[in-house]
Computed example of a mutant assay.
Amino acid sequence: MSYPPDPNNPYHQQPPQQPQQPPQPPPGYGYPQQAPQAAGYGYPQQAPPAAGYGYPQQQQAYGYQPMPGTIQANNGYINIAQLGPVKIASMGQRFVARLIDGLAVGAVIALVMALGLAGSLGIVKDTDDCSQYSYGTVSYDDCLQQQTDAATGLVATMMIMIGVLALFNLLYEWLMVSFVGATLGKMAMGLRVVKESNGQTPGLGGGFIRFIIPIVGAFLCYIGALLVYLSPFFDNSGKLQGWHDRAAGTVVIKK
Rank of each mutant, 00 (worst) to 15 (best):
A248W: 05
C143A: 05
P26E: 03
P23N: 05
V105E: 00
G153N: 15
P32W: 01
A114Y: 15
M1V: 14
D245F: 12
T157A: 15
K125S: 06
M161L: 15
Y3M: 09
P85V: 00
G217R: 06
Y222L: 10
G153A: 14
V124S: 07
L191H: 06
R192D: 02
S231Q: 06
Y222E: 08
A114I: 13
V105I: 14
M113P: 00
P15A: 14
P48K: 11
I78L: 12
P68H: 09
Y133D: 03
S90N: 03
Q17E: 10
M187P: 01
G207P: 03
R192H: 11
M187T: 06
Y229K: 05
Q57I: 06
A225I: 08
P19E: 04
V252L: 11
S139Y: 02
S178Y: 02
G76D: 11
A39W: 00
M91T: 13
S231M: 07
E196I: 15
A248S: 14
Y64C: 02
Y31L: 12
N9G: 06
S139N: 01
L103V: 14
Y229F: 15
A150M: 09
G185Y: 05
W174Y: 10
Q14K: 09
G42N: 04
F208V: 05
R210T: 01
V108H: 06
V105G: 00
T250L: 06
G84L: 03
P15T: 08
G136K: 05
N79F: 14
P85K: 01
I253Q: 09
L167F: 12
D141Y: 08
L167S: 12
T137C: 00
C143N: 03
M91Y: 11
P232I: 08
G203A: 10
